[in-house]
Simulated scan of single mutants.
Amino acid sequence: MAEPTSGGDGTAAVAQIQAAYQRIREQMSQVIVGQEHVIDQLLIALFSRGHCILEGVPGLAKTLMISTLSRCLSMSFSRIQFTPDLMPADITGTEVLEENRTTGKREFRFLEGPLFYNVVLADEINRTPPKTQAALLEAMQERQVTVGRVRHELSDPFFVLATQNPIEQEGTYALPEAQQDRFMFKVNVDYPNFRDEFSIAKQTTALQTDSIQPVLSSEEIIALQKVVREVPASDHVIEYALALVRQTRVGEEGVPDFVTDWLSWGAGPRAVQYLLLGGKARALLNDRSYVATEDIAALAKPVLRHRIVTNFSAESDGITPDRVIDRLLEETPSKEGALTSDPRFQKIFAA
């Protein structure tokens, strides 16, 4: 692939992202059948420099999808199998005392853990207690690990792609809210449709081989991430993203009654950042060099579903975070000028 170009050439930026997207999809289709929306969101997170968590029942190829994506990238890869006895040092690394053969003195040497790779698969992340889950917090946000008094920089690019089973299942620990907020997307992986499951059954029960080739290097991904950030977003699109997020904050001016009735608390500023970054990447994947409100709306669920918390009343009535987001999308006008002229949104923006 040619070196991505940064600058004001929107057509070139679209072509670069499109080429990378198509080549990765072609490679992954050798192994993964269906699940197009999941793959799209993984790639949007990749190009937006964000982390992603996939949730679904066992057997839906969540781990296979992430490991296949890693094979499409010329980057280092590690897999961490999260278990109840996993300790923080097993992830971050640890200092060991050993003898320096040159000086004859004993000194500490840092042994890097599996976080010191470009792509980290955190498999079944909610199978380990919160103490170990929290070992990822600094790495995911600041892209560094502190052991003792020493900070160790992580590789760039750095992605945590996690899988988890629904928390109602046996032996799972709910991720802390701060941990969930580090993930750009939470993607729900559903059962395949009949046609896809037919293909899966046919392919996986016969002799099969794949020849997946890496299509993007670390340098190319970093350059494409810069291209994504150069995509323009109008004030109206930013206001639309803000309107969606600020309406989730219980107790604020202008918040709809259903939000007060259904939510304990809402999303923070990181949700707005990820809506806009994801919108920019999605726009490029959809052959546009600008962000539209449709891009923001399309990513509202994966960005917001793990950042809003339903209360007991909502849960007892079967109200899910996705249901709340659907209602927000219905009641938030996307037409330019409609938000600033609406008295309710004027209160939200003035707060």
Rank of each mutant, 00 (worst) to 15 (best):
V57P: 13
V57E: 12
V57R: 14
P58W: 11
A61R: 06
K62L: 05
K62F: 02
T63Q: 11
T63G: 10
I66C: 01
T68W: 00
L69Y: 07
R71I: 02
R71H: 15
C72G: 09
C72N: 07
L73N: 04
L73M: 14
S76M: 01
F82Y: 11
T83M: 08
T83E: 06
P84H: 04
L86T: 01
M87L: 15
M87I: 05
M87R: 01
M87V: 09
P88G: 05
A89R: 10
A89N: 12
T92V: 13
G93W: 04
G93R: 04
T94Q: 08
E95L: 00
E95A: 09
E95G: 00
V96K: 05
L97G: 00
E98S: 14
E98L: 14
E99D: 02
N100V: 10
R101V: 14
T102A: 15
T103P: 08
E107C: 00
F108I: 01
R109A: 05
F110L: 13
G113D: 10
P114D: 13
F116P: 10
Y117Q: 10
L121T: 08
E124T: 03
E124C: 03
E124P: 05
I125T: 09
R127E: 07
R127H: 09
R127I: 07
T128N: 04
P130M: 03
K131N: 06
K131E: 02
T132L: 03
Q133C: 06
Q133S: 06
A134K: 07
A134Y: 05
A135P: 01
A135S: 14
L136K: 02
Q141K: 11
Q144I: 02
V145F: 08
V145C: 06
V145G: 03
V145D: 02
T146S: 15
T146K: 11
V147F: 00
V147C: 05
G148W: 10
G148L: 07
V150W: 08
V150I: 15
R151V: 13
H152R: 14
D156E: 15
F158G: 02
F159T: 00
V160D: 05
V160K: 09
V160N: 08
L161H: 12
L161W: 12
L161I: 15
A162T: 03
A162V: 07
A162R: 07
T163Y: 04
T163E: 04
Q164G: 02
P166L: 07
E168F: 12
E170A: 15
E170C: 11
E170N: 11
Y173V: 03
Y173P: 06
L175N: 02
P176G: 08
P176A: 01
R182C: 05
R182L: 11
F183D: 04
F183Q: 07
F185C: 01
K186M: 12
V187L: 07
V187N: 03
V187S: 04
V187C: 06
N188Q: 14
V189I: 13
V189E: 11
D190R: 13
Y191M: 01
Y191N: 00
P192K: 00
N193G: 14
